[in-house]
Amino acid sequence: MLGGRYSVSGRSQKYTEAPIKVLLAKPAIDGHDRGIFVLAKAFRDAGMDVIYAGLLPTPEEVVDTAINEDVDVIALSLLNGAHMTAFRNVMEILKKRGVQDIAVVGGGIIPDEDKPALEKMGITGNFGPGTPLNVIIDHIKTRAREIRKMRENEY
C-alpha cells in the first residue's frame, strides 16, 4: 500500500533522529506566496528538511510530491478562499492512494466556521494570520512525532 517506501532496512530505527521532512504547498491557483516562503525559511532554521511545491500545483501533484519525497508532513496554505475545496481534494487523493502516514496541517485565511470541517477531514492547525512561528513549528513537530510513532508500530 505504501509503495515500498519504508523497505530500506534499518530505516525505521532512524525515524526519530532524521530531520522532519515537510512539504509546503499551495494546492490551487493562488499566487500569495509571502507567507509560505517565511514558513519555508523558519522550518529550515528549526532543523527541518523542507520541500516547496512551487506555485500552482494541482492537488494531485501535491500528493505525488509528498509520496515521492517521503515526507512526514504536508503543510497546506491558501489565502484565496478556496481551502474548503482544495484542501478536501488533497485529503481525498491521499485517501484514494491509501496514504495514512502523512500528517496534513493547514493555514491561511481560514474563517473560524470552516475549522471544524477541516479538522474532521484530518487537517490540523489551520493557523490564521499573526500566529507566532514557534506555535506552528511546535505543532508540526508534534504531528511528525505522532506519524513516526505510528510508522514504528506498523513496522
Partner: peptide
C-alpha cells in the same frame, strides 16, 4: 489566470 468559471482549475475559486 485566464481560466473560465467552468474550468477544473477554477473549482472552489469562482468569485472568491
Amino acid at each position: 489566470y485566464g481560466y473560465d468559471c467552468d474550468s477544473k482549475r477554477a473549482e472552489g475559486e469562482v468569485g472568491k
